[in-house]
């Protein structure tokens, strides 16, 4: 039952990622990517990480991709570059040249992984991935990274305001 869900989400994630690359209209690409993210959220949930899954939906699908789409609509960028973007055979060959060996290596590496590492499934505590244990861990062990990330976000806010206000 649940492994069916795994296949379901995986296929959706991969297919919509491929679509993202293939759609010439960036808005469609963004939508595909959002769907891919939602599917990834499902995969997260399957890995006993409900909180992270929800955050994935909230942050990636709900905020980041909305922002991207918003910008696309603001720029009407699809029209500006649509007529010029054609993926010729040369570029396609280039992509294959990089993508195939790299993907091959990665997949082989993952395949080797199985023979060497013993998966530890039975030892999971009951509150694994729950929000409470997540919060305990984040605010005790990972306090400093958390604080630094919050400062980073603040800096990003200020930076964006400056960038947006400046008249180039």
């Amino acid at each position: 039952m649940e492994s069916l869900l795994f296949w379901f989400f995986s296929v959706i994630a991969v297919v919509s990622a491929v679509l993202m690359v293939c759609f010439r209209n960036p808005l469609m690409g963004a939508l595909s990517l959002a769907i891919s993210f939602l599917a990834t959220a499902g995969l997260f949930a399957l890995m006993t990480g409900p909180f992270v899954a929800i955050m994935q939906v909230l942050v990636y699908a709900g905020a980041i991709m909305v922002l991207v789409i918003f910008v696309i609509m603001l720029l009407r960028a699809d029209e500006a570059s649509l007529d010029r973007e054609r993926i010729g055979p040369f570029r396609f060959a280039l992509g294959a040249l990089i993508g195939l060996p790299f993907g091959g290596f990665l997949l082989v590496a993952v395949g080797n992984f199985g023979g060497k590492v013993e998966a530890a499934t039975s030892a999971l505590p009951p509150d694994f991935g729950s929000m409470k244990s997540f919060g305990r861990m984040l605010f005790n062990q990972y306090m400093y990274p958390f604080e630094i990330v919050s400062i980073l976000l603040l800096v990003a806010i200020i930076g964006v305001v400056v960038l947006a206000k400046r008249d180039f």
């Binding site: 990089i98 060996p101 790299f102 290596f105 990665l106 082989v108 590496a109």
Partner: peptide, 13 residues
Amino acid sequence: MMIGAILLVWSVF
């Protein structure tokens, strides 16, 4: 960069 990454992965192998 990706060529470098491929070489890196290959060398690790």
